[in-house]
Simulated assay, not measured.
Amino acid sequence: MSSFTLTRTLPADVGDDALRADVTKGLGGGPKHLPPKWLYDARGSEIFEEITRLPEYYPTRAEREILLDRASDIAAATGARTLVELGSGSSEKTRHLIDALAGLRTYVAVDVSPSALEQAGRELLVDHPGLDVHALVADFQHGLQLPSAPGPRLVAFLGSTIGNLLPAERAEFLSGVAGLLSPGDAFLLGTDLVKGERELVAAYDDAAGVTAEFNKNVLSVLNRELNADFDPAAFDHVAVWDAEREWIEMRLRAREELTAKIPSLGLAVHFAAGEYIRTEISAKFRQEGIRAELAAAGLELRHWWTDRAGRFAVSLAVRS
Rank of each mutant, 00 (worst) to 15 (best):
V133P: 02
T24I: 12
D127L: 11
E225P: 05
G163N: 09
T5R: 14
I290W: 00
E199T: 06
E225H: 04
D139P: 15
F312A: 02
E63I: 05
E246D: 07
F4W: 06
R245E: 12
P232N: 07
D41T: 15
D99Y: 02
G143L: 00
L193A: 08
I248A: 03
Y40D: 12
S91K: 01
V108E: 06
I47G: 11
S113C: 07
P11C: 15
G130W: 15
F140C: 15
A109H: 03
P114G: 06
D127P: 09
S45G: 14
G190E: 05
R311H: 15
A76S: 12
A283D: 05
K32N: 12
L200K: 01
K93F: 08
K216V: 14
A273T: 04
L189D: 02
S91F: 01
F285H: 04
A283V: 13
S72P: 09
V177T: 08
A317Y: 03
T24H: 15
Q119D: 15
V314L: 12
G274C: 07
T94Q: 02
F157K: 02
S220N: 15
G266W: 01
V177M: 09
A203K: 00
A75Q: 12
V155T: 09
L301C: 12
L267A: 14
L188M: 14
S320L: 03
S264Y: 07
Y57W: 10
L67N: 04
R81M: 13
T9H: 14
R64Y: 05
V314H: 02
V137M: 08
T82S: 07
R245L: 05
L131T: 06
L252N: 02
I281N: 07
P59R: 02
T259S: 13
T161V: 00
L165E: 00
T279K: 05
A120I: 06
L258G: 10
Q145W: 06
E256R: 13
D127E: 13
Y107D: 13
E293C: 04
F214M: 10
P55S: 10
N227I: 04
E213T: 09
V177N: 07
A149E: 03
Y40T: 09
L252E: 03
S91L: 14
L180Y: 05
A80E: 02
R291Q: 13
L83P: 12
Q141V: 08
A12P: 08
F285M: 08
E199K: 10
D111Q: 12
R255E: 06
V23R: 04
G310R: 07
G190K: 01
A234E: 00
